[in-house]
Amino acid sequence: MKTWLRNVWGGRNVIKVMTLAGMKAEYSHTLFGFLWLLLKPALMVAAIVATFYFRAGDIELASYALTVAYGVVIWNVMSSIINQMSGLIYSQKQTFLKTTLPREVISLIPVARTGVDFIFGFVFILLAHIFLLQMPSVFSLFVLVSATILGALVSYGAGLIMAILSVYFRDLKYLVSYMMRILFFITPIFLLELPVGILTKTLYFNPFSLAITMGRAGEYAHSNLEGVIFALVLWAGSFLTVGVWFFGKKVYDVVDIV
């Protein structure tokens, strides 16, 4: 892990410029250009507030709107990393083939790209708090950021495995897309908790649910928060360990055959 961190630190400039390159490519030829970095989270938060908070001063609805916004932000981070990572070897093939830097550096570009989006999303959540006259506690913000980071680690670990497997099995791209849709429906993004029944039992097996439940702890406390955090840390550690190991072992092979 020490070597891995040293390699990543050594390649931080590559991550920075390649992230910038990705954003420039994404927003080139758009009317608002880089303003979309602000517009995307602004519109998302505005849509949530407008949908769930239409009566000024209704504290319960305001809290609910914020809780949903927390869930959406965490979901976006996790799903965006997984989606980008599953096509990583194809999208960055030329970079992989021609750099003398360790390859884990390149694998962090999608994470950095998503991190930029999260920072702007986080700012707009703060603004929503102010707009809804519900000032966040330090604890709320701390658990939101911590849960997002843990969720991002789960997605990064899982993404490393998918990045390799999707070269052998191109079909995985479509399977991932369906898997994300299923996860979307069984994750409590718009609900405060999973409804009683079989879905309740999926909480500890679904890192998305765990991250969102933990991230909302400051706004809506779960009865077993310690258990949720423990399970999420366990998922993050496991996926990261297996992902880094598997990616390191196979990345040279798969870049050759893309």
Partner: peptide, 12 residues
């Protein structure tokens, strides 16, 4: 200019 930096970074 940015590409010169990228090339340089990629070469270590």
């Amino acid at each position: 200019r940015e590409n010169i930096y990228i090339l340089g970074y990629l070469q270590g």
